[in-house]
Design a protein around this nucleic acid. Structure first.
Lengths: 322, 322
DNA sequence: TTGTATGCGTTATCAA
DNA sequence: TTGATAACGCATACAA
């Protein structure tokens, strides 16, 4: 229709500067007229590059992961990549199944959440030879490269913060995921070592929710004499902290005077609660962008360091006395 | 390695029953030993079926859409499809760009949010000939098929509910999206027609958030004499209602006695707020599953009705006197 | 600046 | 039950 061969059209699409102005115009006119859409599968087959990047996250309804995914996909899209997304729950077997399905699409790179994967998952990934980034956590032996932060250190920071502000009684509310558990363990250990009493933990088992936060605080209150010992409650997520805040208000317990509540993640609603929630802030956008950049660099053959650490800091607000 | 030709391997993978037990065993052993992963791009090229379904949503960080996506992808995965996901913001131009990119992957079907699309988007979709489902809204002229609910009718239901319970003063807090706006218009009109006073609206312009809900309620309180006229505040989402609830509590305004607040969407936190939030419930899981089923039916050449209506109902809780 | 020939790894068709 | 062969629609190498 444009009076040129197929290769010329291919060139016009991939690198217009290699085609003369006149033919380019004719080709574009023909493309518009026919509604032609290049077949990316054929392109991927021929070029051995799919321009697809896989991402596996535990949950997309969890704002922590969905906002991360947004930042990540924004960045890869800027380089012409599309995202192939799957939810893996918090189960290694589901992850393995998903990895297999994703690998068959020949993604140019893959993102995994966390650093604990099945033996078979590791094997497949290593065999595929594509760049892999593990996010949210730090590992000494990443499959390829990892971008995250040190959860134990973050929890230690919170423990020090609590002690420094005079708290000696503490409790934790922990969701059922490995990183939350890791933080709980580290917090409890350091809080006690630094002079606090043993830390009571409520393990909610499943995903975080406001309802779970309320129930957990109720349990803590049953076991603790709040009136006489201003306690510090460290929640594994802001959502749980939010629930605890609601329950405290309902019971007429004044935060932070009678009870301190601290969240984790510093989600955007944290500052809008009443009182505004003190939380541990992690730059999720930076995490997403860094993970994307690590992958893109590796795809292009550039060196990438094994471990990228993302900073965290305490977002000081009003649910802790200090 | 298994002593068979390439076609036999293909058969062993796609339909094991067409291969003898003995050769199947050898093939599977070889597959395991080599870590062979079939190339889906090549398969898609040859079979003209990608087993990929595209989904375009305005935002993945909005729990309304992310929980919908979960339900949708669960259902399509059960039939062997993978999801290609993109965020389109609330912009038709971005949507058009995304549609073009997605079509090049030759998805077997595509999901769009809403019923308003650019002329070019419609043209491309029609030209592609693949099944299309538009969700969340109802259209008399869907591109192909649509699954959603009648937003005007939903808002009318809320207006009747308010009037029936004696409310004559009302205000709305509305996020910046077309469906929210549609509900606001319908609510205001019916509320007034049914005997209420003119409805004050606060348009927050952007996406819903707790912060926006707080600010909006503050504005409403400035303009309304709450003490003397128990008002009914209809929010376009539970998140906004949540913010309004927090602001009311902070100001010592008792809900529902002095002020009624109603949300929309019945997100899972609604029941856990204090007081529990009255909201309009839409079955998002059903919506996701129905959309998936419509698409799968169309892919398999089965007839699908043009419009599928999902029911809604009022989740009666404690933020409205009744 | 443009074109020819070839191959990417599957599935579909037909034959044995 | 298995195999040979020809597409599928592009990109790459090379030639003109």
């Amino acid at each position: 229709m444009a009076g040129v061969s197929q290769v010329t059209v291919s060139r016009a699409l991939s690198d217009p500067s290699k085609v003369s102005k006149a033919t380019l115009d004719r080709i574009q006119a023909a493309i518009y007229a026919t509604g032609f859409v290049p077949n990316a599968a054929a392109g991927a087959l021929a070029s051995r590059r799919s321009h697809l990047i896989s991402a596996l996250v535990p949950s997309i309804t969890n704002i922590v992961y969905s906002s991360f995914i947004r930042a990540f996909s924004e960045r890869i899209r800027a380089d012409g990549y599309q995202i192939l997304l799957s939810e893996t729950g918090f189960d290694q077997q589901d992850e393995e199944t998903a990895v297999k399905a994703h690998l068959s699409r020949q993604p140019d790179a893959i993102l995994l959440t966390g650093i604990h994967h099945s033996r078979e998952t590791r094997r497949m990934l290593l065999a595929s030879g594509i760049p892999v980034v593990e996010v949210w956590d730090i590992s000494d032996t990443p499959i390829d490269t990892c971008v995250g932060f040190d959860h134990a250190a973050a929890a230690r920071t919170v423990a020090k913060f609590a002690i420094k502000n005079g708290y000696r009684t503490a409790a934790t509310i922990t969701a059922g995921d490995s990183r939350a558990r890791q933080r709980q363990v580290s917090f409890a250990q350091h809080f006690q070592t630094a002079g606090g009493f043993p830390v009571m933990d409520i393990d909610i088992g499943g995903p975080a929710s406001i309802a779970a936060g309320r129930t957990a605080l109720t349990q803590i209150l049953k076991a603790t004499d709040v009136e006489n010992s201003a306690a510090f409650v460290f929640c594994s997520s802001d959502l749980l902290a939010h629930g605890a805040l609601i329950e405290a208000a309902k019971r007429g317990i004044v935060v932070p005077d009678a009870l301190a509540i601290m969240g984790f993640g510093d989600q955007d609603f944290a500052a809008s609660l009443e009182p505004p929630l003190t939380s541990l802030r992690v730059d999720r956008d930076l995490l997403g962008h860094s993970a994307a950049e690590a992958l893109i660099a590796r795809i292009n053959g550039h060196p990438v360091k094994d471990v990228t650490r993302i900073n965290f800091e305490i977002a000081l607000r009003n649910t802790v006395l200090c």
